[in-house]
């Protein structure tokens, strides 16, 4: 499992091998909600998840 750095507390966090861009994780150590970012080269990083409300159309 890739180990990534938490942008909130600086600790490490393992994400599943099959994680996809946009996937949300809660960091067990600090409780932060984190979003997985995957760049064009396939490199993974985490950022604080913005507040995205549930919303829907018809």
């Amino acid at each position: 499992m890739p180990e990534l750095s938490c942008p909130v507390c600086g600790g490490t966090m393992a994400v599943p091998e099959d994680a996809l861009a946009g996937e949300l994780f809660e960091h067990g150590d600090c409780g932060a909600q984190l979003e997985l970012i995957v760049d064009d080269n396939g490199s993974m990083s985490l950022k604080m998840a913005e507040e995205v409300a549930e919303d829907w159309g018809e």
Partner: peptide, 8 residues
């Protein structure tokens, strides 16, 4: 998503 995981 289809795997039951939250995603933006």
């Amino acid at each position: 998503d289809e795997r039951g995981r939250k995603r933006i």
